[in-house]
Amino acid sequence: MRELEYVRADDAASAVALVSGEPEARFLAGGTNLVDHLKLGITAPRLLVDVSRLPLDAVEEYDAPGGTGLRIGANVRNSDLAAHPAVRASWPAVSRALLAGASGQIRHQATTAGNLLQRTRCVYFQDATTPCNKREPGTGCSAVGGYARYNAVLGASPDCVTVHPSDLAVALTALDAQVVVLGVSGERRIPMTGLHRLPGDRPDLDTVLEHGDLITAVELPPSAAARRSTYQKARDRASYAFALVSVAAGLELDGDVVRDVRIAWGGVAHRPWRATRAEDALRGQQLTEEAVLAAAELELEGATTTDQNAYKVPMIRNTTALACTRLAAGEVSR
C-alpha cells in the first residue's frame, strides 16, 4: 500500500475539516473494511483521519413522538449494540441483524457508522486487476456476464449490478432510522431510506453523503412495529457469510389484521430495499402466508435476473413470508 498520513482527530468538527480539506482523505473507524481495501490496492488515500477515538460511543435515550427513541453513537461497536438491552427490547431486528453478520471478532472491532458505509463485496470490485465502474468509473462492469450469484435483482443499472452488503443497514431501513451527519455546513439528518443510492450511471457513489460528511449518530424512533421486529437472513453457510437475501420485518397487529408493517430487504439491490409496495398491500389485511407471498410478489414486479441469481426472487419472497408469519405467531423471541 501507498504511504499515507495518519491523523487522530481531536473532535468531530476538526475531523470534518481535515477530510473535507483533502480530496484524497478518508475517515478510519474500526478499519475492518477500509484497511482490507488499502492492502488490496483498491483505494489509496493520502490521508487517514482516525475517528475511532472520538467520544461518539454512547447509546442514549431521547424523547420522541410516541415514546422513547435511541440515539446510537457512530463509534458504538457492533457487538455492544447487538447486546444493548434497550435495542434487544424495543428494536430486536437491529440486534438480530448485527448478530447475523460477520464474526465475533469483526463485530467487536466494527463500528455502527463503518458498518453502514462498508463497501460492496463484489469480487470484481475487490480485485484491482479487473474492470469495475464502482472502483474505477468508466472501466466497465465485470459482474455483468461474470460471477453473478450475488448480483442485484432490483434497481440495478447496466453500469453496476452489485448489492449492498450490510445487515445492520437493512434493519435500520425497515425501522425508519435516521442518520445524524456533521458536514462543513453543520449538522443534518438523513433518513436511512435515503442514505444509500441506486447505482444509475454513478455506481462510484454508494450514498448521498458529501466528501467530508461525518456520521455522528443513528437515531432509532420507537414504534410498535419495531418492538415486534425480526431479521431473517439466508446465506451459503450457517454463519460468517454475507446474505444471499435477508429480510428485516416489523409488525403491529390488531387481532390478525395488520395495523402497521415494515419490510426491508437485503441482498437484492445496491441499497437496502424498503419494500413499500409490499407494506401497502399488507396494511389492513389479514396476516397470512399467502398474503405476504402475494405482497412480496408485487414488490418483485420488475425484478431482473440471470441464470445465476434468479433464485433470489423465490428466496426473498419465501424469506419474507417466513419472517412475517413467525412474527405474527409470536415465535420470535430475543
Binding site: R121, V123, Y124, Q126, D127, T129, T130, S142, G145, G146, Y147, D236, R237, A238, S239, Y240, A241, F242
Partner: peptide
C-alpha cells in the same frame, strides 16, 4: 472456486468468498 473464463482466473479468491465450513456448520 469460480473461474471467470473471460479473464482466466479464479475470482472467488479469498476465504470470505470461497466458503469453507464454519463451526456452526
Amino acid at each position: 472456486s469460480y473461474r471467470d473464463a473471460r479473464f482466466g482466473h479464479i475470482v472467488t479468491q479469498d476465504l470470505a468468498t470461497y466458503h469453507v465450513a464454519t463451526h456452526a456448520d
